[in-house]
Simulated scan of single mutants.
Amino acid sequence: MTDATEIRHGRYCVFNLHIHLVFVTKYRRGVFTGEVLADLRGIFAAVCEDFSAELVEFDGEDDHVHLLVNYPPRVSVSALVNSLKGVSSRMIRKKNYPSIRKKLWGGALWSPSYFAGSCGGAPISIIRQYIEQQQTPD
């Protein structure tokens, strides 16, 4: 994993985009064990790699997970989230964990909603001040 302040380069851009994602299990059921969370870490890292993104940090509790993802500007956050949730749900259900099978029925592991918060960089007030202080030509 790279340093969170490392600037990445694309063909036509330079970027440092991070997003904090939180996914909650369906019905907020406590179904995750340490083993399931370890599997989720690997699944999320592989999906991020497919998007040329990087899973910087991952952890969770029995009913939700937190991800910190460094992603390129060409990636839509909603497309990334859709893939992360869809692939992880399929893979975890395929492994047939008893804790999940007992508490969740049907085909869904995740609640349809999620939290996404941009993070990193300077606070909004500092950026606003910087922009206001630009020397506009006459």
Rank of each mutant, 00 (worst) to 15 (best):
T2Y: 13
D3T: 09
D3S: 14
D3R: 13
A4D: 05
E6L: 08
I7N: 08
H9V: 06
G10R: 11
G10E: 07
R11D: 13
I19T: 13
I19N: 04
L21T: 01
F23P: 05
V24E: 03
K26Y: 04
R28F: 06
R28T: 05
G30H: 12
G34C: 03
G34V: 02
E35P: 00
R41K: 14
R41V: 00
G42I: 00
F44I: 03
F44A: 09
V47M: 03
V47W: 00
C48P: 02
C48G: 07
E49V: 01
D50I: 00
A53K: 03
V56C: 11
V56H: 13
E57P: 07
F58G: 08
G60V: 00
G60W: 00
E61M: 11
D63T: 08
V65D: 04
H66C: 04
H66N: 09
Y71A: 04
P73F: 02
V77Y: 04
S78H: 06
A79L: 12
A79S: 14
V81C: 10
V81Y: 06
N82Y: 10
L84T: 06
G86P: 04
V87H: 07
S89V: 05
M91W: 07
R93F: 07
K94H: 09
K95Q: 14
K95I: 00
K95W: 07
N96H: 13
N96K: 15
Y97P: 12
P98N: 07
P98A: 08
I100N: 01
R101Y: 03
K102I: 00
K102Q: 10
G106N: 11
G107S: 09
L109K: 01
L109C: 04
W110K: 06
S113W: 09
Y114P: 05
Y114A: 04
Y114M: 01
A116K: 08
G117I: 00
G117R: 07
S125R: 15
S125Y: 10
S125Q: 14
I126R: 15
I127W: 02
I127S: 07
Q129E: 15
Y130F: 08
E132H: 11
Q133D: 12
T136I: 12
P137H: 05
D138G: 11
